[in-house]
Design a protein around this nucleic acid. Structure first.
Length: 269
DNA sequence: ACTATTTCCTGGATGC
DNA sequence: TGCATCCAGGAAATAG
Protein backbone atom coordinates (compact mmCIF):
# COMPACT_ATOMS: atom_id res chain seq x y z
CA UNK A 1 0.00 0.00 0.00
CA UNK A 2 1.96 2.95 -1.18
CA UNK A 3 1.52 5.96 1.08
CA UNK A 4 3.70 9.04 1.32
CA UNK A 5 6.99 7.32 2.33
CA UNK A 6 6.62 4.59 -0.28
CA UNK A 7 5.69 7.05 -3.02
CA UNK A 8 8.59 9.29 -1.98
CA UNK A 9 10.96 6.32 -2.21
CA UNK A 10 9.62 5.27 -5.59
CA UNK A 11 9.68 8.80 -7.00
CA UNK A 12 13.29 9.28 -5.86
CA UNK A 13 14.24 5.96 -7.42
CA UNK A 14 12.58 6.83 -10.72
CA UNK A 15 14.21 10.23 -10.73
CA UNK A 16 17.65 8.81 -10.07
CA UNK A 17 17.35 6.27 -12.84
CA UNK A 18 15.29 8.04 -15.48
CA UNK A 19 15.95 11.79 -15.32
CA UNK A 20 17.37 12.90 -18.67
CA UNK A 21 16.02 9.89 -20.53
CA UNK A 22 13.48 10.21 -23.34
CA UNK A 23 10.32 8.27 -24.07
CA UNK A 24 10.41 6.91 -27.62
CA UNK A 25 7.37 4.66 -27.75
CA UNK A 26 4.31 4.03 -25.64
CA UNK A 27 2.26 0.88 -25.45
CA UNK A 28 -1.05 0.84 -23.62
CA UNK A 29 -3.06 -2.29 -22.95
CA UNK A 30 -6.50 -2.50 -24.52
CA UNK A 31 -9.38 -1.78 -22.18
CA UNK A 32 -7.11 -0.17 -19.62
CA UNK A 33 -9.55 1.44 -17.19
CA UNK A 34 -6.94 3.12 -15.09
CA UNK A 35 -6.38 5.99 -17.45
CA UNK A 36 -7.85 9.29 -16.38
CA UNK A 37 -6.76 10.76 -19.68
CA UNK A 38 -7.72 8.96 -22.91
CA UNK A 39 -5.14 6.43 -24.08
CA UNK A 40 -4.41 8.31 -27.33
CA UNK A 41 -3.71 11.46 -25.35
CA UNK A 42 -1.35 9.70 -22.98
CA UNK A 43 0.47 8.17 -25.93
CA UNK A 44 0.63 11.51 -27.75
CA UNK A 45 1.99 13.46 -24.78
CA UNK A 46 4.49 10.86 -23.65
CA UNK A 47 5.90 9.93 -27.03
CA UNK A 48 9.07 11.88 -27.71
CA UNK A 49 9.01 13.59 -24.32
CA UNK A 50 12.16 14.22 -22.35
CA UNK A 51 11.96 13.22 -18.69
CA UNK A 52 13.18 16.17 -16.64
CA UNK A 53 12.37 14.77 -13.25
CA UNK A 54 10.17 12.58 -11.12
CA UNK A 55 8.88 13.76 -7.75
CA UNK A 56 6.20 13.07 -5.20
CA UNK A 57 3.10 15.22 -4.77
CA UNK A 58 0.86 13.84 -2.03
CA UNK A 59 0.53 10.16 -2.89
CA UNK A 60 1.05 10.90 -6.58
CA UNK A 61 4.18 10.48 -8.65
CA UNK A 62 4.63 13.39 -11.02
CA UNK A 63 6.92 13.17 -14.02
CA UNK A 64 7.89 16.58 -15.38
CA UNK A 65 8.29 16.31 -19.12
CA UNK A 66 9.65 18.51 -21.87
CA UNK A 67 7.78 17.70 -25.06
CA UNK A 68 7.61 19.27 -28.50
CA UNK A 69 4.44 21.08 -27.40
CA UNK A 70 6.07 22.51 -24.30
CA UNK A 71 6.07 21.34 -20.69
CA UNK A 72 3.77 18.49 -19.68
CA UNK A 73 3.29 16.21 -16.70
CA UNK A 74 2.77 12.51 -16.32
CA UNK A 75 0.80 11.92 -13.13
CA UNK A 76 0.76 8.43 -11.66
CA UNK A 77 -1.26 7.23 -8.71
CA UNK A 78 -0.35 3.74 -7.56
CA UNK A 79 -3.59 2.95 -5.76
CA UNK A 80 -3.09 -0.20 -3.74
CA UNK A 81 -1.03 -2.43 -5.94
CA UNK A 82 0.37 -0.21 -8.65
CA UNK A 83 4.07 -0.56 -9.49
CA UNK A 84 6.46 1.39 -11.69
CA UNK A 85 9.20 -0.91 -12.89
CA UNK A 86 12.32 -0.09 -14.85
CA UNK A 87 13.04 -3.16 -16.98
CA UNK A 88 15.16 -4.45 -19.77
CA UNK A 89 12.99 -5.11 -22.84
CA UNK A 90 13.97 -8.78 -22.64
CA UNK A 91 12.42 -9.16 -19.19
CA UNK A 92 9.19 -11.07 -19.11
CA UNK A 93 6.07 -8.93 -18.83
CA UNK A 94 4.46 -9.15 -15.43
CA UNK A 95 0.80 -10.07 -15.38
CA UNK A 96 -1.42 -6.97 -15.37
CA UNK A 97 1.07 -4.78 -17.22
CA UNK A 98 -0.99 -1.82 -18.43
CA UNK A 99 1.51 0.65 -19.87
CA UNK A 100 5.02 0.32 -21.27
CA UNK A 101 7.14 3.35 -22.13
CA UNK A 102 10.17 2.50 -24.24
CA UNK A 103 13.09 4.76 -23.39
CA UNK A 104 15.91 6.12 -25.54
CA UNK A 105 18.39 4.46 -23.16
CA UNK A 106 17.09 1.07 -24.27
CA UNK A 107 15.15 0.39 -21.06
CA UNK A 108 11.43 0.30 -20.43
CA UNK A 109 9.31 1.89 -17.75
CA UNK A 110 6.38 -0.42 -17.07
CA UNK A 111 3.24 0.27 -15.09
CA UNK A 112 1.80 -2.85 -13.53
CA UNK A 113 -1.33 -2.95 -11.37
CA UNK A 114 -3.26 -6.16 -10.62
CA UNK A 115 -6.05 -4.58 -8.61
CA UNK A 116 -6.42 -1.62 -10.92
CA UNK A 117 -6.95 1.02 -8.25
CA UNK A 118 -4.10 3.01 -9.76
CA UNK A 119 -4.65 5.94 -12.12
CA UNK A 120 -2.61 7.55 -14.90
CA UNK A 121 -3.09 10.91 -16.50
CA UNK A 122 -1.19 13.50 -18.50
CA UNK A 123 -1.44 17.25 -18.07
CA UNK A 124 -0.50 20.00 -20.45
CA UNK A 125 -0.52 23.66 -19.60
CA UNK A 126 -1.36 23.24 -15.95
CA UNK A 127 0.49 22.14 -12.89
CA UNK A 128 -0.69 19.12 -10.94
CA UNK A 129 -1.53 20.00 -7.36
CA UNK A 130 -2.40 17.75 -4.45
CA UNK A 131 -5.87 18.39 -3.04
CA UNK A 132 -4.55 19.07 0.47
CA UNK A 133 -1.47 20.13 2.40
CA UNK A 134 1.71 18.10 2.32
CA UNK A 135 2.10 16.47 5.75
CA UNK A 136 5.85 17.08 5.73
CA UNK A 137 5.89 20.74 4.84
CA UNK A 138 2.65 21.90 6.48
CA UNK A 139 3.21 24.33 9.36
CA UNK A 140 2.13 23.36 12.84
CA UNK A 141 -0.36 26.24 13.14
CA UNK A 142 -2.03 25.35 9.86
CA UNK A 143 -2.16 21.72 10.96
CA UNK A 144 -3.89 22.58 14.22
CA UNK A 145 -6.37 24.86 12.52
CA UNK A 146 -7.21 22.20 9.92
CA UNK A 147 -9.06 19.98 12.42
CA UNK A 148 -10.94 22.69 14.26
CA UNK A 149 -14.67 21.95 14.53
CA UNK A 150 -14.55 18.60 12.74
CA UNK A 151 -16.83 16.01 14.24
CA UNK A 152 -15.31 13.15 12.28
CA UNK A 153 -12.92 10.76 14.07
CA UNK A 154 -9.34 12.00 13.93
CA UNK A 155 -8.30 8.87 12.02
CA UNK A 156 -10.84 9.63 9.28
CA UNK A 157 -9.63 13.21 9.11
CA UNK A 158 -6.03 12.01 8.72
CA UNK A 159 -7.10 9.80 5.82
CA UNK A 160 -8.95 12.66 4.13
CA UNK A 161 -6.63 13.62 1.29
CA UNK A 162 -8.19 17.03 0.83
CA UNK A 163 -6.93 17.98 4.28
CA UNK A 164 -3.52 16.28 4.29
CA UNK A 165 -2.34 14.56 1.11
CA UNK A 166 -0.18 11.51 1.63
CA UNK A 167 -1.18 9.80 4.87
CA UNK A 168 -2.83 6.39 4.51
CA UNK A 169 -3.91 3.65 6.87
CA UNK A 170 -0.48 2.55 8.07
CA UNK A 171 0.92 5.97 8.93
CA UNK A 172 -2.35 7.20 10.39
CA UNK A 173 -2.34 4.30 12.87
CA UNK A 174 1.36 4.61 13.63
CA UNK A 175 1.18 8.38 14.16
CA UNK A 176 -1.86 8.14 16.44
CA UNK A 177 -0.08 5.53 18.53
CA UNK A 178 2.96 7.73 18.98
CA UNK A 179 0.76 10.68 19.87
CA UNK A 180 -1.24 8.60 22.38
CA UNK A 181 -4.55 9.37 20.69
CA UNK A 182 -7.31 6.83 19.96
CA UNK A 183 -8.37 6.68 16.31
CA UNK A 184 -12.05 7.23 17.19
CA UNK A 185 -11.52 10.50 19.06
CA UNK A 186 -13.47 13.30 17.40
CA UNK A 187 -11.05 15.70 15.76
CA UNK A 188 -12.78 18.66 17.41
CA UNK A 189 -12.32 17.11 20.86
CA UNK A 190 -8.54 17.24 20.64
CA UNK A 191 -6.74 20.00 22.47
CA UNK A 192 -4.15 22.16 20.83
CA UNK A 193 -1.52 20.20 22.77
CA UNK A 194 -2.94 16.89 21.46
CA UNK A 195 -2.78 18.19 17.91
CA UNK A 196 0.76 19.47 18.30
CA UNK A 197 1.76 16.06 19.62
CA UNK A 198 0.08 14.44 16.63
CA UNK A 199 1.83 16.86 14.32
CA UNK A 200 5.26 15.93 15.57
CA UNK A 201 4.35 12.22 15.64
CA UNK A 202 3.47 12.44 11.95
CA UNK A 203 6.67 14.29 11.13
CA UNK A 204 8.68 11.71 13.02
CA UNK A 205 6.96 8.63 11.61
CA UNK A 206 7.13 9.84 8.01
CA UNK A 207 10.79 10.81 8.29
CA UNK A 208 11.72 7.46 9.81
CA UNK A 209 9.71 5.59 7.20
CA UNK A 210 11.31 7.46 4.32
CA UNK A 211 14.72 6.73 5.81
CA UNK A 212 13.81 3.02 5.89
CA UNK A 213 12.64 3.10 2.27
CA UNK A 214 8.96 2.72 3.17
CA UNK A 215 6.96 -0.24 4.47
CA UNK A 216 6.84 -3.39 2.40
CA UNK A 217 3.43 -4.93 2.86
CA UNK A 218 2.21 -7.39 0.24
CA UNK A 219 3.87 -6.48 -3.04
CA UNK A 220 5.31 -3.02 -2.60
CA UNK A 221 8.79 -2.55 -4.02
CA UNK A 222 10.62 0.56 -5.16
CA UNK A 223 11.77 1.29 -8.69
CA UNK A 224 14.73 -1.04 -8.34
CA UNK A 225 12.64 -3.89 -6.96
CA UNK A 226 13.90 -3.26 -3.42
CA UNK A 227 11.63 -3.75 -0.44
CA UNK A 228 11.34 -1.16 2.29
CA UNK A 229 12.05 -1.97 5.90
CA UNK A 230 9.69 0.20 7.89
CA UNK A 231 7.18 -2.62 8.41
CA UNK A 232 9.67 -3.88 11.01
CA UNK A 233 9.11 -0.67 12.96
CA UNK A 234 5.32 -0.83 13.00
CA UNK A 235 4.10 -0.58 16.58
CA UNK A 236 0.38 -1.13 16.02
CA UNK A 237 -0.42 -1.60 12.35
CA UNK A 238 -1.49 -5.22 11.75
CA UNK A 239 -0.36 -6.20 15.24
CA UNK A 240 -3.83 -7.10 16.53
CA UNK A 241 -3.60 -9.12 19.75
CA UNK A 242 0.16 -8.72 20.05
CA UNK A 243 1.58 -6.90 23.08
CA UNK A 244 2.03 -3.14 22.93
CA UNK A 245 5.76 -2.36 22.64
CA UNK A 246 5.38 0.19 25.45
CA UNK A 247 3.01 -1.34 28.02
CA UNK A 248 2.39 -4.93 26.91
CA UNK A 249 -1.38 -4.54 26.58
CA UNK A 250 -2.89 -6.38 23.59
CA UNK A 251 -3.28 -4.24 20.49
CA UNK A 252 -6.93 -3.78 19.50
CA UNK A 253 -8.46 -3.58 16.06
CA UNK A 254 -11.62 -1.67 15.17
CA UNK A 255 -13.11 -0.81 11.80
CA UNK A 256 -13.42 2.89 11.09
CA UNK A 257 -14.45 4.39 7.78
CA UNK A 258 -14.21 0.87 6.37
CA UNK A 259 -10.54 0.62 7.38
CA UNK A 260 -8.98 -1.50 10.06
CA UNK A 261 -7.58 0.69 12.76
CA UNK A 262 -5.08 -0.60 15.29
CA UNK A 263 -4.37 0.95 18.67
CA UNK A 264 -3.23 0.29 22.20
CA UNK A 265 -6.21 0.72 24.55
CA UNK A 266 -3.90 1.69 27.39
CA UNK A 267 -1.43 4.05 25.72
CA UNK A 268 -4.00 5.76 23.53
CA UNK A 269 -6.85 7.77 25.04
C1' DA B 1 -20.64 21.99 3.89
C1' DC B 2 -19.83 17.82 6.20
C1' DT B 3 -19.96 13.14 7.17
C1' DA B 4 -20.81 8.21 6.44
C1' DT B 5 -21.27 4.37 3.42
C1' DT B 6 -20.68 1.84 -0.78
C1' DT B 7 -18.15 0.56 -4.76
C1' DC B 8 -14.39 -0.79 -7.56
C1' DC B 9 -10.77 -5.03 -8.12
C1' DT B 10 -7.76 -9.41 -7.58
C1' DG B 11 -4.57 -12.32 -5.03
C1' DG B 12 -3.65 -14.54 -0.98
C1' DA B 13 -5.29 -16.71 3.17
C1' DT B 14 -8.56 -19.53 5.33
C1' DG B 15 -11.88 -23.26 6.04
C1' DC B 16 -14.20 -27.34 4.81
C1' DT C 1 -6.51 -30.88 -4.12
C1' DG C 2 -10.15 -28.03 -4.99
C1' DC C 3 -13.57 -24.87 -4.27
C1' DA C 4 -15.98 -21.06 -1.90
C1' DT C 5 -15.59 -17.23 1.00
C1' DC C 6 -13.42 -13.45 3.13
C1' DC C 7 -10.29 -9.74 3.49
C1' DA C 8 -6.95 -6.01 2.26
C1' DG C 9 -7.88 -0.49 1.18
C1' DG C 10 -7.36 4.67 -1.82
C1' DA C 11 -10.48 7.50 -3.44
C1' DA C 12 -14.54 8.44 -6.20
C1' DA C 13 -19.41 8.22 -6.05
C1' DT C 14 -23.50 8.20 -3.60
C1' DA C 15 -26.60 8.97 0.19
C1' DG C 16 -27.94 11.27 4.20
Amino acid sequence: MPELPEVETIARGLHKRLAGDRIDEVWIADKSELLKSPAYEIARVLRGAQIERFRRVGKHIVGDLASANGPAQWVIHLGMTGRCLVCKPSEEHAKHTHVIATLASGRELRFVDPRRFGRLEVLEGREFAAPGEDPITVRAERFVQMFRGRKTPIKSALLNQSLLSGIGNIYADESLFRAGIRPRRRAASLTRIDLLKLYSAIQQVLAEAIRAGGSSISDYVDATGQSGLFQLEHRVYQRTGQPCVVCGTGIKRVVLAGRSSHYCPRCQR
